[in-house]
Computed example of a mutant assay.
Amino acid sequence: MNTKSPPTDSRPRRTGQGESSSSTLTYHRAEIKGVGVFYREAGPKDAPTIVLLHGFPSSSRMFDSLIPLLATHYHLIAPDYPGFGHSDAPPPSQFAYTFDHLAETINGLLEQLRIDRYSFYLQDYGGPIGFRIMLAHPERLEALVIQNANSHEESLGQKWTAIKEYWADPAARPEVFTAFTSFDSTRYRHDGESPNAERYSPDTWTDEYAFLNRPGQPEIQAALLYDYRTNVAAYGAWQEWMRTQQPAALILWGRYDRSFIAAGAAAYQRDLPNAQVHLLDAGHFALDEKVDDIAALMNEFLDAFYLRQADE
């Protein structure tokens, strides 16, 4: 069992938002029902665990700059989903690429690691995976950080009109999937609307585009894009869960995101009126541009949450 204790006043206090450590970062693989799952781990193992769930078409690598800024006080687990990053990518004939199955696999990883209490950081695809796990095991969630991970229809940007047509008949709209996985779209998810394009490393989108062109990836990603319709159908259930459970929540939203527009941040406040909400001058992958700000907000939020827990 995970018996990690929250930070207390006896712990060393922070010296500022620049406090950072990568000395504990390690890389691992676990086998979950025959599928190899890669994950990054950092921080003291007796500290509260933060599970970082990445977006499309990224991997746990998207957290490379964030992990050292949290690892001085928190235990971090950042997995790659099957079909992403360094995890196995069996063909769809051998592994069902649905968000239900990805959530089941990541939950299996956490159970195998004997982590039964954790906070989540959800970004993009991490949202539907994390919400499925939270609804199945609400008692395991401690706090929630949401960064451009959607659960409200009003946040769906203009491009989703074409994607909904693709869901209705994928064979009739193959150009939608082609555009979704194109080089231009892969780059646009990072720097598309930001006025600070010089802050974005081209390594991010060139590496992601290379990943999207690995053998078998078109079939895997087409299956997941088609299954994304089940997430939209589940939004109402996720919203009801939030209204009922009222988890402590920090909402971070890159205002330049055109996949999940900024209305999504405000929508969370309807369900979680006590949530902290911050609009950032960043895009869909807000860590590209605002990692220091995000780390500072997370450390402040998580420190306060776990200190309250220690006092109760």
Rank of each mutant, 00 (worst) to 15 (best):
F177N: 01
L302T: 12
H28N: 07
A171S: 15
F95E: 00
A96P: 07
L69H: 14
D288P: 00
L141Y: 08
L113V: 14
G55S: 11
A71V: 11
T178H: 10
M134R: 00
A30Y: 10
E240D: 11
S5C: 03
S65E: 03
I251H: 04
V176Q: 10
E111M: 09
S182F: 04
F131N: 07
V176L: 09
A296N: 10
M134V: 11
V145L: 06
S182R: 05
S21E: 02
F56N: 13
G18Q: 06
A310D: 13
V37A: 01
E153K: 14
S5W: 01
P92N: 03
E175D: 11
Q217G: 13
T26W: 05
Q147E: 13
I77L: 07
L307N: 04
T161A: 15
Q17I: 07
R13P: 10
G108L: 13
E41Y: 13
N299Y: 14
T72N: 01
P48W: 10
H278Q: 15
A149P: 06
L225A: 10
D292E: 15
W241P: 08
A143P: 09
G157D: 07
Q147T: 00
K159R: 14
A78N: 05
P195I: 14
G130I: 07
H278L: 08
G157K: 03
S87D: 14
N2S: 09
H28K: 02
F260R: 01
N213L: 03
P202S: 03
F305S: 09
G130W: 12
A265T: 12
T178Q: 14
R114K: 12
D203H: 05
W205F: 08
I133Q: 01
A310N: 15
N148D: 06
Q217H: 10
A30I: 03
K4Y: 03
P202N: 10
L25K: 07
S60T: 00
V291P: 01
L113P: 15
A179I: 05
A162W: 03
G85R: 09
G83M: 06
F301H: 08
D288E: 15
Q276N: 02
H137Q: 13
N2P: 10
L287W: 06
Q112M: 04
T15E: 14
E198P: 15
L279K: 09
D271S: 02
K164E: 11
L70R: 05
R11G: 04
